[in-house]
């Protein structure tokens, strides 16, 4: 389990990026949401051991990634949006870099690459941004780290590749793995998320399981204003609203609407509802 305890981080200039973040992320796929500059990349960097906590602590299964112990680091992989392999192709990367990761699965790498229409012997420098991204995603998933951090994984991917990415993530991620995906294009992996963390101006506004959201909130689209809406937006002639869940079976989560509702601060009761039973 990945935990953040009273975590704060500031840049050298003193600008606070993260303010007193507290959360626990269980194995599964977690969506990390937030506007530009909210602190998502910093949070991922701290989780990956790339940065060290200024105040508070980050722990992954009881060990601090900031200590950069080999036993911890071989369980964590962070695919940032600027991640570049210094090797000629992805198989060379797997041979030279992947050797540090005991769970690397070459068969999974081959099948992931094949699913993206790649052989793995393409020279990385000659690949387009999207193709390179696909190669790195295939590699990151095949490393099978227990904590996988993905920053905008679908960036630069075409429509078919995004669909393939969705299938690949659901196929490759095991029950013992924790995956945090930071993205602005929520729809790409929408059905896969188990939890959601919402950062706003360095503060963690929400950290909750999607099961809890579905159980407690309903997302409604109507041609008429919804009377009992906790939050509502208009989109053309439609009204998109968040209401208290009526059905115990839940409804599909509109992550973008939920994000807008919480960040706008116009619906504080939504957070209260989600907090009920101490689930936040």
């Amino acid at each position: 389990m990945l935990t953040f305890q009273n975590l704060s981080y500031s840049y050298r200039s003193g600008y606070p990026v993260l303010k007193n973040v507290n959360a626990a992320v269980s194995p599964g796929i977690c969506l990390l949401l937030g506007e530009n500059g909210a602190g998502k990349t910093t949070l991922l960097g701290l989780s990956a051991g790339l940065l060290r906590a200024e105040r508070g602590a980050v722990e992954f299964d009881g060990a601090s990634p900031g200590d950069r112990l080999p036993s911890t680091m071989s369980d964590i992989f962070y695919l940032s949006d600027s991640w570049q392999s210094p090797f000629k192709d992805i198989y060379a990367t797997a041979r030279f870099h992947g050797a540090f990761y005991p769970n690397l699965d070459f068969d999974m790498l081959a099948s992931n690459l094949e699913a993206f229409g790649l052989t793995g012997h393409e020279k990385l420098k000659s690949l387009s941004l999207g193709m390179r991204r696909k190669t790195y995603i295939a590699y990151a998933l095949a490393l099978r780290p227990r904590l996988l951090l993905l920053d905008e994984p679908a960036n630069g991917l075409d429509i078919d590749s995004k669909k393939e990415l969705r299938r690949m993530v659901s196929r490759c991620i095991g029950d013992d793995q924790t995956v945090i995906i930071s993205t602005h294009t929520i729809a790409d992996l929408e059905v896969l998320y188990d939890t959601i963390m919402l950062l706003h101006k360095g503060e963690l506004l929400l950290s909750v399981s999607t099961a809890d959201i579905s159980e407690k909130l309903g997302f409604v689209t109507s041609s008429m204003p919804v009377q009992e809406a906790l939050y509502m937006e208009t989109e053309g002639a439609c009204f998109n609203a968040i209401v208290r869940a009526e059905s115990p079976y839940g409804s599909a989560i509109d992550f973008e609407l939920l994000y807008s509702a919480i960040v706008s601060g116009k619906a504080p009761e939504i957070i209260e509802i989600l907090k009920e039973d101490g689930k936040q």
Partner: peptide
């Protein structure tokens, strides 16, 4: 020659 500093920093070696 290996210019990716993030990659080296997070390499699982003490």
């Amino acid at each position: 020659m290996v210019s990716n500093r993030a990659l080296i920093t997070t390499l699982p070696a003490s």
